[in-house]
Amino acid sequence: MKKDGDKIIFENAADLPDMAKSMGTTRFNKTGTWRNERPIVDTDKCTGCGICWKYCPDMSILEDENGKAAIDYEFCKGCAICVEVCPVKAISMVEEEK
């Protein structure tokens, strides 16, 4: 079995696994490219309450070294749920650059 980063490459039947689940994960699929707008966290305002983390459907809220929210831009799809649920309005959306 060949791999190119997180991608799995099949060249012939002998490369097929017995168990698909033992192979790769959807981390190969960089959904950050889906975004039209990107969320930006104002870390001065963020209280580290974890509410945005709790509601993100894409596991794209991480924790920075100060316990504040940090966005995983590799996977964040830009749904803006985090902006809506933040009780102190610490997250805002800006247009994505090309």
């Binding site: 981390r27 699929n29 960089k30 889906w34 894409d58």
Partner: peptide, 10 residues
């Protein structure tokens, strides 16, 4: 659940 899954935004 891994990120990179194929669900729509939101």
């Amino acid at each position: 659940v891994h990120p990179g899954h194929l669900a729509c935004q939101g």
